[in-house]
Amino acid sequence: MNKLVVDQLTKSFDSSIILQNVSFSIQDGEFVSILGPSGSGKSTLFHLIGGLYRPDSGEIYINGERTTGEKGRISYMPQSPSLLPWRTILENVVLSSEIIEQPNKSEALNMIQQAGLEGYEHAYPAQLSGGMKQRASFIRSLLSPQSLICLDEPFSALDEFTRMDMQEWLLSIWTEHRRSILFVTHNIEEAIFLSDRVIVLSDRPAKVQREFTIPFARPRHSSLMLTREFLKWKKEIFEELKVLV
């Protein structure tokens, strides 16, 4: 069953077309990455799916329901952790579920433990490192009741070591709490390593350039990134992107 269907989305701001006839879909429990150059309209695509704006034309369906322009239908993890400094980690991770319904504190505590943030439940965000904040931010999106999670370049501000760590961590958590994930990134390795499918967007206006189905079996480990097969995929996607620049 299709979790998310994006059908022929077109959006322009001030007469410049940002998205043009973008269509794709995500299956239930699938991990799909959107890859594209910076400023290629990936964020705009997210804002449309999140319902912040209405598209000029085209529709969005979540769970088969038309949700074009409706807010609160996706769970969202932004680029910066966006944890509120006056809330403890526990209070922060239940924020998104609080917006939709009554939060479940015991489930949240459980999740914090699984995420390796045990002992920080009652700490404030300022007391955590960058990677830990992103973990908290991801738990927050997992605790939200919506079944589709949209991640907007969540690891782009982290250093290389923390980033690799976080990618493996994300996969391990995701394997346990299976959701449909739409992941936006401009990092080719990250996209291949994490995803079932990679969708390459072209630059200005953004169109779906090509779709790659990544065949690697799960669970995946970071050693995968050094295999010949992985590098072959990287090369192929890189060449696809090079055409665009």
């Binding site: 997210f46 912040l52 807010k71 609160g72 239908r73 932004p78 917006i99 949209c150």
Partner: peptide
Amino acid sequence: HYMKMSGA
């Protein structure tokens, strides 16, 4: 932005 995307 986060709050709005989360449907607050």
